[in-house]
């Protein structure tokens, strides 16, 4: 099977939502399930917990698939956010505070101007291109080092500044990333 593009995955995920397509769901599960599990292991979950998070994530993927909107998010990002929230739910028995798009007290987004509007799909692609251009050590900071046990031990030792260590490492990588994305899809988009 040729490798599928992010756009293909958006279409496949959308068809899970539109027509409860079980074959499409199986494709999504076989592709993203092992990746979600790998990420959870890297976050420090043991095998059993990582498996549980995968199960609960894909139960939600099936039940929420009709809400997936390819203009707002890439399929991988949508699945990532579900897995992230499930992890918090499973570990802390707690909901993660997040803004609710239906909240009447929410400050509305400016109406997307046709020239400046960047869809979730385009944004995710620009992000992937930018990450690829980052120096290796900075890519590592974004994806790995602060999940590692070593970082957590370090944080535990410096109880007074629990966020300090992680924050200073991230700052540089994120600033570089923003510059790259600005060059790609235009100033002010991040």
């Amino acid at each position: 099977m040729p490798e599928l593009s992010p756009e293909d995955w958006s279409l496949i995920l959308a068809s899970v939502g539109h027509s409860q397509d079980k074959d499409a769901f199986a494709k999504v599960f076989h592709h993203f399930g092992p990746r979600v599990k790998s990420l959870m292991l890297k976050y420090g979950s043991n095998n059993e917990l990582a498996e549980e998070i995968v199960q609960e994530t894909f139960v939600i993927v099936w039940r929420k698939a009709a809400l997936f909107d390819a203009d707002k998010a890439a399929a991988s990002t949508w699945i990532f956010t579900i897995a992230r929230n499930k992890r918090i739910d499973v570990l802390r028995r707690q909901n993660r505070p997040e803004p609710d798009m239906n909240d009447p007290a929410m400050a509305q987004d400016p109406i997307p101007n046709s020239e400046e509007f960047v869809s979730g799909k385009e944004r995710a692609l620009a992000v992937q291109r930018a990450i690829a251009k980052l120096p290796e050590d900075q890519r590592e900071v974004l994806h790995r080092s602060y999940f590692s046990e070593e970082t957590h031990r370090e944080i535990a030792k410096n109880l007074k500044t629990p966020l300090g260590t992680v924050k200073s490492r991230l700052r540089l990588a994120l600033s570089k990333l923003r510059t790259l994305i600005d060059e790609d899809i235009g100033e002010g988009s991040i």
């Binding site: 995710a124 992000v127 994305i181």
Partner: peptide, 10 residues
């Protein structure tokens, strides 16, 4: 955007 960055690791 940051969620995209994190999801890219998938």
């Amino acid at each position: 955007m940051f969620e995209d960055v994190l999801a890219a690791s998938l």
